[in-house]
Amino acid sequence: MSNSPSDAHNESRSWLFVPGDRADRFAKALAAGADAVIVDLEDAVAPPDKTRARDAVATWLDAGAADGRRNVYVRINGADTAWFAEDVGAFAAHPGVRGIMLPKAADTAVLDAARARARVGLRLVPLLESAAGFAAIREIASTPGVERLAFGTVDFQVDTGIGGDGEELSFFRSLMTFASRVAGIGSPVDGVTTTIDDADAIEAAARRARRFGFGGRLCIHPRQIVPTHRGFAPAMEERIWAQRVIEAAEASSGSATVLDGKMIDAPVIQRARLVLAAAR
């Protein structure tokens, strides 16, 4: 049974960060075309500006610029900081916030602290950024209210000493997909691509994430949104294959059949339906 809200599987592909101390960019971020917007109070805001940024975000939300129908999340400061409690108090119960992203999630205590002050239906997105977080991944994913897991790849590489973002992280990406599936929550969200202008590289990173079972990626600039969406869309050859599978299955009245020398049975038909659903 899922621990996430009932619509958790209506998944966002692109999650656009906007600095919490740049109120002039909030509306632009909402209009940029991302599936979800994350107002960032953590890495994007210098320590002397944390309180001012929190107040600015709260004022913006109070004005109704983003209501519960919009995919607006707030990445609050970590539980080991002086700002955590006030961040939770400001946003966990706010009707304009769809969810809270919790950085450096390493155990369930931080999730419980956020849930204790949360409104009904608030979504939690733990950001796994350390070895400790992955050690507790099953418990974190199974915590009530968790919608999806997100991968903080850059911080994770620093924490573990891993030097690459490709095959070096394959095990951890697979583990996130596995833990999410076992917990019955939405598919995980992959980390950022630091390049902004290389659309091919951004699309390729999204396609890799999709192959690992991820449903979205974190974006640091609006120019990353379109190639990210392209990367999560089934390629034309996949769509053609899926349509042919469905047609062959219908012609055989649902019985196992053969297409291009390969067996088509129930799991293959289900995969084809998923491809066509994603294409739509």
Rank of each mutant, 00 (worst) to 15 (best):
A248G: 02
S180V: 12
D159L: 01
A179E: 03
F151Q: 03
A114Y: 03
A46H: 11
Q157N: 13
V45M: 04
K262I: 00
A209Q: 00
A150C: 14
V88H: 02
D198N: 11
A106D: 06
A79H: 05
I246F: 08
A105Y: 01
G145F: 07
R239T: 14
A66W: 09
L61D: 11
M101N: 12
P188M: 03
A113H: 07
F91W: 07
T194E: 05
R138V: 10
A199T: 10
K28N: 09
V45H: 09
A56C: 08
T59I: 10
N71F: 08
G231H: 00
R98P: 14
R70W: 04
D62V: 06
D155V: 02
F156D: 09
L274D: 11
D21F: 01
A179M: 04
I225F: 09
A141L: 03
A249K: 00
V39C: 14
A105C: 09
K28A: 13
E247I: 11
V97I: 09
G152S: 13
F134Y: 10
A46I: 13
V110F: 08
R138A: 14
D43R: 04
S142P: 06
S170G: 05
R115I: 03
D35C: 02
S187R: 08
G64Y: 13
G64S: 09
K104G: 06
I76K: 05
A31H: 02
L274R: 12
P188L: 04
A233L: 08
D198P: 02
P48F: 01
D200G: 03
F214E: 00
P222I: 15
G96P: 12
A235K: 06
D197Q: 10
A135V: 03
G145Y: 04
S2C: 12
W15N: 06
D62A: 05
R69D: 13
T108I: 12
V189N: 04
D107P: 15
V120C: 15
V74C: 06
A58C: 15
A209E: 00
R271H: 15
F91M: 03
W60N: 15
F26T: 03
N3V: 13
V226W: 06
R123Q: 06
V57Q: 13
H229S: 03
T51C: 03
R52L: 15
R280A: 08
P126C: 05
G254W: 12
M176H: 04
L169T: 14
G89M: 10
A85E: 12
A278I: 12
R13T: 11
L259H: 07
D197V: 11
L16P: 02
E250L: 12
R244T: 00
L122M: 06
A116Y: 14
R119I: 02
P48C: 01
I240A: 14
G133C: 05
E147L: 01
R22N: 08
R22Y: 15
V37P: 15
M176A: 09
I246E: 08
F178Y: 08
W83R: 03
A279C: 11
A131F: 06
A279R: 09
D7N: 09
A36T: 03
D87T: 04
A136H: 15
E11Q: 10
T59M: 12
Q270M: 09
F17I: 10
D7S: 07
L259S: 05
R208T: 13
S187L: 02
A248L: 05
G254L: 12
S130F: 07
A235F: 04
